[in-house]
Amino acid sequence: MTLVLGAIADDFTGATDLANNLVRGGMRCVQVIGVPDTPADLSDVDAVVVALKSRSCPADDAVRDSLAALAWLREQGARQIFFK
Rank of each mutant, 00 (worst) to 15 (best):
D37W: 00
D65P: 04
F82M: 09
I8A: 07
A78I: 08
A51N: 00
R24A: 15
L18G: 00
F83Y: 13
F83M: 12
A15T: 06
T16F: 13
D17W: 05
R79T: 13
G77S: 13
I8L: 08
G34A: 06
M27T: 10
G26Y: 11
R55V: 01
R74Y: 00
K84A: 09
D60S: 14
P39F: 05
G77T: 12
A15R: 05
C29T: 15
A47Q: 09
K53G: 10
A62W: 04
T2A: 15
V45Q: 06
A71Y: 07
E75Y: 01
C29A: 15
Q31D: 06
G77H: 12
R24F: 13
V49C: 00
T13S: 06
L5E: 10
N20L: 06
I33E: 09
A71G: 06
A47Y: 05
G77W: 03
L67R: 15
R74T: 11
T16A: 15
A9R: 01
L3Q: 09
D46A: 12
D44L: 11
A69P: 01
N21I: 00
D65L: 11
L3R: 07
R28D: 10
D46R: 03
R55S: 12
S54H: 04
I81M: 04
G34T: 11
A9G: 01
S66K: 10
A51T: 03
D60L: 09
V35M: 08
T2H: 15
L22I: 05
P58V: 02
I33T: 13
L5K: 13
G25E: 10
N20V: 06
A7Y: 00
Q80H: 13
C57S: 08
R79K: 15
V50M: 02
R24K: 15
S56L: 00
S54D: 03
D10E: 02
A15D: 04
W72D: 08
N20F: 12
A19F: 03
M1F: 11
D11I: 11
L3H: 08
P39S: 13
V4N: 09
C29W: 01
R64I: 02
A15S: 03
D10I: 02
G14F: 03
V49R: 01
D11E: 15
L18K: 02
I8S: 09
R24S: 14
T13I: 08
L70H: 09
R28M: 04
L67M: 15
L18M: 04
S56T: 12
L3S: 04
T16S: 14
G14Q: 01
A59P: 02
A40D: 14
A69S: 01
T2M: 15
G25K: 07
Q31H: 06
A78H: 08
Q76E: 11
R74Q: 13
L70A: 03
S43W: 02
Q76W: 07
